[in-house]
C-alpha cells in the first residue's frame, strides 16, 4: 500500500507528568497490577504508578517530535484534558496552557492543541478557554466526561456556543479510563443532545473506533456533525485482533467520519508510533482494501477539514455566551 501524502495524528498527549495528576497514574497502575496479582498488594499500585509516571518527562515534546519523524507523522493534535476539578495537581490550567503554547513555539508547525475546561469552573473556565484560544491559537475543545459530567450537560453549552462561533471542533473522551474516574459518563450516546443542539459544531468521539463501537458508529452514521477516532486501536478488545477489528470498521460506510489517532504516550511501552503507523498501512493491514483517497482522508484529510481556518479561530473576542454561566449574576 502506498503511504498517504500526509499523516496527521488526531489524538495524542504530551508525555508530561505536569499535565496528568498522580492519582490518574495510580488508578491505571492499580488496574494493571490486577493482571499480575489476584489481590491488591499493599504499595504495589503506588510503586507501578511511580514507574509509569517517570515515563512522562517529555515536557517539551522533543522525544515526541523524534518519534513523529520516525513514523512520518507531519503534525499532531495534542489533547490537554482538564483534571484539575477532580484531582489535586501542583500545576494549574494556566500552567498547562502555557506549557502547550511553549511546545508549539518550540516545534513550529508540528502541533495543534485542543484544550480542556471542566464545565464546573463556570465563568472562570469559559474565560480561560476564550483566552487560550485568542492568546495561543488553540484549535479545539477537549472534553473529559468521566471527570463527572455529561457532555450534554447544559453547563457545557456556553463552551459549545463559543466553539460554534470560532468553528472549533470538540473532542470528547469515550470508553473506560483510569478507574479513579466515573465510566458512566463515557458513553458515546451522551453527546446526542449537544450534537443536536449545536449542528454547527463538529464533535469527535475519542476512541469511538475502539470503545462502544456500535454506539459510536451509529452516531457517526446518523448525526452529520459526529465523528470518531481510532486512537487506542492496539488495545481493541477483539477475538480476531485489532487489525480485523479495524478492517470491519472500515467496511461500514462511515470512512468519511473516521480519524487516525495514536493516543501516544499510552502505548509507548508496547508500540512505537512508527510501529503503529506501519501496522495500519502494511500490505496485509486493515486498510488494504481501501482506495488511496480514503486512506488519505482517514490519516489526515478529515481532521484537517475539522480544524478551524486561522482567520476564524483567532478573530477578535467579544462573542459573549448566550447561555447562563455558573458564578455569573443572573
Amino acid at each position: 500500500m502506498r503511504r498517504p501524502p500526509l499523516i496527521v495524528d488526531g489524538h495524542c498527549h504530551l508525555a508530561s507528568s505536569r499535565c496528568i495528576p498522580s492519582e490518574f497514574f495510580v488508578g491505571v497502575a492499580r488496574n494493571m497490577a490486577r493482571k499480575q496479582f489476584a489481590r491488591e498488594r499493599s504499595g504495589e499500585a503506588e510503586k507501578l504508578g511511580r514507574v509509569l509516571e517517570l515515563q512522562y518527562h517529555d515536557h517539551d515534546a522533543d522525544r515526541l517530535v523524534r518519534k513523529m519523524d520516525e513514523a512520518g507523522i507531519a503534525r499532531t493534535v495534542l489533547l490537554a484534558p482538564d483534571f484539575t476539578h477532580v484531582f489535586k495537581s501542583q500545576y494549574s490550567l494556566e500552567d498547562m496552557a502555557a506549557q502547550h503554547a511553549a511546545v508549539r513555539a518550540r516545534h513550529p508547525g508540528r502541533f495543534h492543541v485542543f484544550f480542556g475546561v471542566d464545565p464546573r469552573w463556570g465563568r472562570s473556565g469559559y474565560d480561560l478557554f476564550e483566552r487560550v484560544v485568542d492568546r495561543h491559537g488553540f484549535e479545539g475543545l477537549k472534553v473529559y466526561p468521566p471527570c463527572g459530567f455529561s457532555p450534554s450537560d447544559e453547563r457545557m453549552f456556553p463552551l459549545y456556543e463559543f466553539c460554534a462561533a470560532r468553528q472549533l471542533p470538540v473532542l470528547l473522551h469515550t470508553g473506560p479510563t483510569t478507574p479513579t474516574l466515573d465510566f458512566s459518563y463515557a458513553d458515546p450516546y451522551l453527546i446526542d443532545a449537544a450534537a443536536k443542539h449545536f449542528p454547527g459544531v463538529n464533535f469527535i468521539l475519542a476512541h469511538g473506533g475502539v470503545n462502544f463501537v456500535e454506539q459510536a458508529k451509529l452516531m457517526c452514521n446518523y448525526r452529520a456533525n459526529v465523528y470518531l477516532d481510532i486512537s487506542g486501536f492496539p488495545a481493541a478488545m477483539s477475538a480476531s485482533g485489532w487489525q480485523q477489528h479495524l478492517a470491519d470498521l472500515f467496511s461500514q460506510g462511515i470512512n468519511h467520519k473516521i480519524i487516525f489517532g495514536t493516543d501516544w504516550p499510552v502505548f509507548s511501552m508496547k508500540d512505537d508510533l512508527a510501529a503503529m503507523v506501519s501496522g495500519l498501512l502494511e500490505e496485509t493491514g486493515p486498510m488494504r482494501s481501501l482506495a488511496d483517497s480514503t486512506v488519505a482522508a482517514i490519516m489526515a484529510g478529515t481532521i484537517g477539514k475539522l480544524l478551524p481556518s486561522p482567520s476564524v479561530a483567532t478573530q477578535a473576542s467579544g462573542i459573549g455566551p448566550m447561555f447562563e454561566l455558573e458564578g455569573e449574576k443572573p
Partner: peptide, 22 residues
C-alpha cells in the same frame, strides 16, 4: 511483553540492579 510486564521489569531493574529510574 505488555505495558504491565515492561513496568514490572523496570521496577525489578531498580530493585535488583540498583538502576536509578529517575
Amino acid at each position: 511483553m505488555q505495558s504491565i510486564n515492561r513496568l514490572m521489569l523496570l521496577s525489578l531493574l531498580e530493585q535488583e540492579c540498583g538502576v536509578s529510574l529517575e
